[in-house]
């Protein structure tokens, strides 16, 4: 096994490193990474951001929203927690979790922490979750990654994953909410997050002198490029939401307007607006203009303005109308 330090707290850069060592520069030995990120909400590959996270809250609190390449539900993680990744040659396409989780369980045991599996490939202490795990398979490699909730802001975690109940129907993968706890609370002798990392890496790598690989300056440029192309774009984070239908209502001074939309691959594919206080002709014009528009507030405002429909409802601005359409 070989340890690679990414020296980055950027979630997109770390995802790019995983991808790089799985798809572009696979290494014969198992690769092990142990990393953390600035506050991030990480959604599963086939999840819908609208059903999983409070995006406005995330923006307001500088929480990065990212979509990973593996399955499962949404995780919140910050600098108080860690993530670990194993990358290794695939075994005939079959799914294995235990062999990746056992070394983590054993390492926690060295710290006198008794962690156990549940049926959903999470690790628990006394029935409360401390680690969520997922995988993706790419070519002949398996990427297994998991979180370790060492000392996370659990209040922020709960708040950022509390979603307003919009009427959405979709076939997206839904998160399973579980009770969580911090590893730090269960330690006999308190240590900080850096010390926790050092001990975990040493236990998993089987000693203090382990093999490492240093990411070169040239490779750092490649990783940034992968992050820019595969992980950072709006089209990936929000544009890859599985197809969904959404209904939203908003009360304005003159009455209530209801918007019903179909969204596929981040684009509005159908739109209907209902309300009894605006002209039918202008509504038809807006409905037609919105088809093909990205499901993003700024783009919807642009469409409204381009068609001169800012005042189609008395005293309602383009921004307010866009907030009805894009929740």
């Amino acid at each position: 096994m070989i340890y690679i330090e990414t020296n980055s707290t950027d979630v997109f850069y770390n995802f790019a490193a995983e991808y790089y060592f799985a798809a572009i520069k696979p290494i014969d030995e198992t690769v092990f990474l142990f990393w953390r990120t600035t506050p991030s909400l990480i959604i599963g590959k086939y999840q819908n951001t609208l059903e999983e996270i409070d995006n406005d809250y995330a923006i307001k609190h500088n929480i990065t929203v990212a979509r990973r390449m593996s399955g499962g539900g949404t995780m919140y993680i910050d600098m108080g927690g860690w993530q670990f990744t194993f990358i290794e040659k695939d075994k005939n396409g079959e799914i294995h979790f235990a062999e990746y989780l056992q070394p983590v369980i054993d390492a926690l045991k060295e710290l006198n922490i008794k962690a156990e599996f549940n049926g959903r490939n999470d690790l628990l202490i006394d029935g409360r979750k401390i680690s969520g795990n997922s995988q993706y398979k790419l070519g002949d490699r398996t990427v297994h990654h998991g979180t370790l909730l060492f000392d996370n802001d659990i209040e922020q975690m709960v708040r950022a994953t509390t979603v307003d109940e919009y009427k959405i129907t979709s076939k997206s993968i839904k998160s399973v909410r579980e009770r969580v706890t911090s590893i730090r609370e269960h330690l006999e002798h308190d240590i900080d997050a850096d010390e926790f990392k050092r001990l975990m890496v040493e236990h998993i790598m089987d000693g203090k002198s382990y093999k490492t690989y240093t990411i070169s300056d040239e490779e750092k440029v490649i990783l940034e490029k992968i992050a820019d192309e595969r992980f950072r774009p709006w089209e990936v984070v929000y544009g890859k939401n599985p197809k969904f239908d959404i209904t939203n209502k908003k009360h304005f001074k003159g009455g209530t307007v209801e918007a019903k939309l179909n969204v596929n691959r981040g684009m509005i594919t159908d739109c209907a607006l209902y309300g009894d206080f605006f002209g039918l002709e202008r509504v038809n014009e807006l409905q037609e203009a919105l088809v093909g528009c990205p499901y993003r507030k700024d783009d919807v405002i642009d469409v409204i303005k381009q068609h001169g429909l800012e005042n189609m409802i008395h005293d309602v601005s383009a921004e307010e109308l866009a907030e009805l359409i894009v929740v």
Partner: peptide, 10 residues
Amino acid sequence: IETEKVISQV
């Protein structure tokens, strides 16, 4: 496909 939180291409 996605199963058991694993994404696999068949």
